[in-house]
Amino acid sequence: MTLLVQTLILGLLIGGIYALMSSGFTLVFGVMKIINLAHAAMIVLAAFFTWWVWDLTGIDPLLLGVVATPVMYGFGWVLYKTVIARVHRADHELAMVASFAVAIAASGVMSLVWGTELRAATPSYFNTSLEIGSIVVPHAQLYACGGAVALLLGLYVLLRRTFIGRAIKACAENRDSAELVGINVERTMAQMFAIGAATTGFGGAALSVIYQFFPESHFVWIGRILCVVILGGLGSLAGAALGAAVLGVGETITAIYIDTQWATTVPYILIIAILVLRPQGLLGERMRADGAHA
């Protein structure tokens, strides 16, 4: 029983971090209907940034996540302006291929700059824990999850309660109408993409503290993110939160009750199972198929 509770707690803590990591991805999908395969590469980039600054200065890596956020915002803006917007205009599907290319090239650059060894930021609390009875709650996971949940709430408020959020939704729904109420659609789209990228700032910082990573880790992480958003229904922020919890718990249960090496297969098995059995995701409703063409 204790083991189960312990497993659930660990799974949910990880889930909180997965949710933040997936939020930007699902936001971009919701608006542009593209799979941004470079999203996880941005997370790993932010992790390297955090680790690097921590290694140089010793500043707390999770605090550095706050610095990494605007840095990644800028990175996302530039990526959108130089690549994504251009390719997306010409060919919707090719934008996904372009993002894949960015991911591959980025991992090459990261290898050149930071090498291919496994890295991890190890602040004082990286292997200490809070103990409640016989339940162990690792400090690093707790802080990272707390930060992630706070940022997610912030993102939710930003999208729901501010003009930026309303403008983003407006662009996603009807570009012409958005233009007609005076929204600069191109700029809003760039902001949206940059906000999506900004979420990788803290996501990467959390990654650098909790996991070991190297440039090609982004393949593992994109797998997890894809699983989260497929579980929750592509494009849904609330769905991503649920999907993240399910995946976090699922992986932890597999790791503890079966074997660690099988835990890595969980996301992919879930992706394929969900797409065969319930492609709209756990929460999503069946979309009103086609007919919209007419």
Partner: peptide, 28 residues
Amino acid sequence: LTTRRTRGPAFVIVSFALLELLGLLARN
């Protein structure tokens, strides 16, 4: 079979997931 009810973007995901899953299976 996964394309019975899903289109474009979802298929990109499945194709990628399949490769990674098979790699992990071969390893495990």
